[in-house]
């Protein structure tokens, strides 16, 4: 093969590769809107926050509200539930992180870090099992506080058997994380805004 031919082959190769590369970038750019259209749209993003009055929620009672299409549990805990949660050693937890959107990511999952503003009586968390998203059932499971025949606090997920304690922390089963705590703030002593 002569050197001239050789050089020519190389130049062609370069042109092929350069053309191909430019084409590939073009295709990727054109594909992006077709993928990105699937992300949440403006109307979904607009449904950002809800306000809830906690006064009617009696001690030992739990309400479920809907926020961004998902259930949020708001539980007015008994003293026994709070105490049970605070007694657990951090080393016994499957997920040692607080998972509290109002705190830094690295904060540990102590009983106190699972609420906002030190109001430990009100536990506010996503009712979405961190395994595959089912809604756990309240006052159930091995980590509830038992008084006679009744269970207080604790959650059991009917789908694949995850068990959460009285602070909504994962203790047993396939779920990897504690129930998430959404961003929320106290507007007054008994009123919160989620989102």
């Amino acid at each position: 093969m002569s050197t001239a031919e050789h050089a020519e082959t190389n130049r062609r190769d370069f042109l092929y590769i350069a053309t191909g590369a430019v084409g590939a970038v073009g295709v990727a750019l054109a594909a992006w809107p077709f993928i990105n259209q699937m992300n949440p749209d403006a109307s979904v993003l607009a449904l950002a926050s809800v306000e809830i009055d906690l006064a009617p929620v009696a001690e030992g009672q739990e309400i479920t509200i809907k926020w961004r299409g998902n259930p949020v549990f708001i539980r007015h805990r008994l003293a026994a539930e709070i105490e049970a949660a605070s007694k657990v050693a951090l080393t016994d937890l499957k997920d040692p992180l607080a998972r509290n959107a109002n705190l830094p990511d690295a904060d540990p999952a102590t009983g106190e870090n699972r609420v906002v503003g030190g109001k430990e009586q009100f536990l506010v968390m996503m009712g979405v099992c961190t395994h595959l998203g089912c809604v756990p059932i309240g006052n159930e499971g091995e980590f509830a506080v038992v008084e006679g025949n009744t269970k207080h606090g604790g959650w059991f997920c009917p789908c694949h058997g995850s068990q959460y304690d009285t602070a909504g922390r994962i203790r047993k089963g396939p779920a990897p994380e504690n129930l998430h705590i959404p961003q929320y703030a106290y507007l007054s002593d008994t009123k919160i805004r989620i989102g």
Binding site: M38, N39, V44, R68, G69, N70, G133
Partner: peptide, 16 residues
């Protein structure tokens, strides 16, 4: 989130 078009299975999900 991309699959759902939101934060849960909802109308955008059903539609797609």
């Amino acid at each position: 989130t991309l699959l759902w078009g939101g934060y849960s299975v909802d109308n955008p999900t059903l539609n797609r």
